[in-house]
């Protein structure tokens, strides 16, 4: 059971992602993205990586996509826009598809060829405590640096969308 179930869920995620990418409407795309992310979370759970799955749902599908949703509200979803998107997708699909195949097929077939022996012990479930011990232990510095990155992103985002206040000459007379 543990063998094919994650595979099935992973395939589900893959299909959802493919659909997400090819919708003319953003909202539909987002919905399918949610589906893909949730499938991925399920895959993580099926693999025994409970922490990863939980974090995936909470942050990825929760926070990140929520931000996406806020932005989607500004998007133009009128029927002419949708028709235009459909047309553009049809026109632009050929070369990227070929390129992706050229990239993906060697990747897949290269992987298919051999099983790499790493010398690590075969395992199963990885308990959360182990992950925590890792993150708070040897990888603490990396986590701190990642937090720097988050603060930088926060400040940057705040700065980028700020509208400048009107100058003194533009302010209406009190």
């Amino acid at each position: 059971m543990i063998g094919w179930f994650p595979l099935f869920l992973g395939t589900l995620a893959l299909v959802s992602a493919a659909l997400a990418v090819t919708r003319p409407s953003v909202v539909h795309g987002l919905m399918w993205l949610v589906a893909a992310l949730l499938s991925l979370a399920a895959t993580f759970f099926a693999l025994g990586a409970g922490f990863a799955g939980a974090v995936q749902i909470l942050i990825y599908a929760g926070a990140i996509l929520a931000v996406f949703v806020f932005v989607v509200m500004t998007f133009d979803a009128s029927p002419p826009a949708l028709a235009r998107e459909r047309l553009r997708l049809k026109q632009a699909a050929r070369w990227p598809l070929l390129m992706v195949l050229a990239l993906g097929l060697p990747l897949a077939f290269g992987l298919w060829g051999g099983a790499v022996a790493t010398g690590l012990a075969p395992g199963g479930r990885v308990p959360v405590q182990a992950v925590g011990g890792l993150l708070f232990g040897p990888w603490a510095v990396a986590v701190e640096i990642a937090s720097f990155l988050l603060i930088a992103a926060l400040l940057g985002a705040r700065h980028l969308v700020r509208r400048d206040p009107p100058t003194d000459s533009e302010r209406p007379a009190p």
Binding site: W95, P96, M99, V100, A102, L103, P106, L107, F109, G110
Partner: peptide, 20 residues
């Protein structure tokens, strides 16, 4: 952007083909 991305993807594809 799409063109630059295309070029990058082409480079990676080339490398992968080589490795393959």
């Amino acid at each position: 952007v799409r063109d630059y991305g295309f070029a990058m993807a082409g480079g990676i594809a080339g490398l992968l083909l080589l490795v393959w």
